[in-house]
Amino acid sequence: MSLISKNRHNRVMVFIDLRNVLRSVELQAVETRLDLYAMTKQLVGPRDLVAAYVFDTRMPLDVQDSSRRFHDKLRYDGFRVVAREAYDPQRNEQKEVDVAMACEMVVHALRGHYDVAIVVSGDRDFIPAIQHVQAAGKMVEVAAFAKSVSNEVIRSADRFHKLETMPLLQMYSPDDEVFAAAAPGTDAKEEGVSDGEAD
């Protein structure tokens, strides 16, 4: 039971660290994908969603990039995709993404664009940003898979959502490969993300 109650009139902004949350979804045996759309809808609930940001990296425009179509699909679904051109393929690392997301959280908080920030990441690099947002009088909720979140992050947040207890992994018909392959956002499926659905 939380001391802080949900106010359905709260303005909510969602910040998704895409690579961090995808790393936690490791169900190799089952053909399934993380449904970002359903996740955002479930996290926000009856509250007002101001904006949902997805932070990721992308390749330069002259390089073949399978995530580009996925980013487009997310934009189509209503996400604001911030894709930094800072992926290091040799070290399999993404750069600038954490700082970009932290800056976005703090800037919107200081400008009073939202009442509640939902951070979808277990990375403890966000703790200073979370504290600054809270200092600006906003509430911060953290959503992550329990195995990939540090206790410091959970303690910093005003509320913690366990993603593994939420029905977020989308299933497919067993004989539906053709359907899945033909569906928009197929490239994204290769990365373990579902394109979800638009209401």
Partner: peptide, 11 residues
């Protein structure tokens, strides 16, 4: 649409 939780407890 069918979704299940990562802890494989609810569908």
């Amino acid at each position: 649409f069918a979704h299940f939780s990562a802890d494989q407890k609810i569908l």
